[in-house]
């Protein structure tokens, strides 16, 4: 694996990415960079291509054209497991937990899947505590409310010790209390890692992100610092309006 300098392990450069479904241009000629160690927000109206972009980055879809440069290699079209093992790990809008496994077992999947073996007890407990899941560690994950299931999913992605975390609407459907945990987890992760954060909660995007990219109908509308984006008339028209 290619290691970048310092504690931040890797940035991702997206170049002229395209993906269509039949006639639908889900992602069309999108370019931007998620610099190593930075947190970049990805916003846009429903159906603007945010999830499709994450699916391309994570290898779930193969791009029609374009490059995804990460540590000197092009990830475009690589299988998901290769991308994850290179350090780029995603979450989904849905929790996608394993209902029959306990919370602790679900979280361990993150470490087990990439071949890191069973996480040691101290690391496991620390992660569960930070996620606010200690009390439910031995509960089957399927019996938890939706918001807590999403916390499990985020803890699971962190257990994979990613360099780059791709988060698809981690805050959607969460209570204020659960949101605090998610925000704290992201805040802690971004001290050492790189984040691409998709969400509709602009307040949190502004709080966490160094930079914001705005998608609209599959194309990049604009990008810039959160303070500038929130006042941009074109963004206000398609997104805040």
């Amino acid at each position: 694996m290619t290691a970048a300098s310092g504690s931040a392990r890797g940035g991702v450069e997206i170049r002229r990415l395209h993906k269509s479904f039949g006639g639908v241009r889900a992602v069309w000629d999108v370019s931007f960079t998620v610099p190593a160690g930075k947190t970049v927000g990805l916003i846009g109206p429903n159906g603007s291509g945010k999830t499709t972009l994450l699916n391309l980055l994570a290898g779930y879809y193969k791009p029609d054209a374009g490059e995804i440069l990460y540590g000197g290699t092009d990830l475009a079209g690589l299988p998901p497991e290769r991308i994850a093992r290179a350090g780029v790990v995603r979450t989904w809008q849905d929790p996608r937990i394993v209902p029959d496994l306990t919370v602790a077992e679900n979280v361990a999947i993150g470490a087990l899947a990439r071949g890191a073996g069973m996480p040691n007890d101290a690391a496991r407990r620390a992660l569960l505590a930070e996620s606010g899941l200690t009390a439910v560690a031995d509960t089957p994950a399927g019996s938890l409310p939706y918001g807590q299931q999403k916390l499990v999913a985020i803890a699971r992605s962190l257990a994979a010790s990613p360099a780059v975390l791709l988060l698809d609407e981690p805050l959607a459907g969460l209570s204020a209390f659960e949101r605090q945990h998610v925000v704290a987890l992201i805040q802690q992760f971004r001290t050492t890692g790189t984040v691409l954060l998709v969400d509709h909660a602009f307040g949190v995007i502004a709080q966490l992100c160094d930079h914001v990219v705005v998608l609209n109908t599959g194309t990049k509308l604009t990008e810039g610092p959160p303070g500038v984006i929130s006042k941009d008339p074109s963004v206000i028209e398609v997104y805040f309006g």
Partner: peptide, 20 residues
């Protein structure tokens, strides 16, 4: 545990690096 996870949601396991 990985087998159970792969049976339940193989794409999720692959996305975390698991060789399903």
């Amino acid at each position: 545990q990985l087998l159970v996870a792969s049976a339940s949601d193989p794409d999720m396991v692959r996305a975390l690096g698991g060789p399903v």
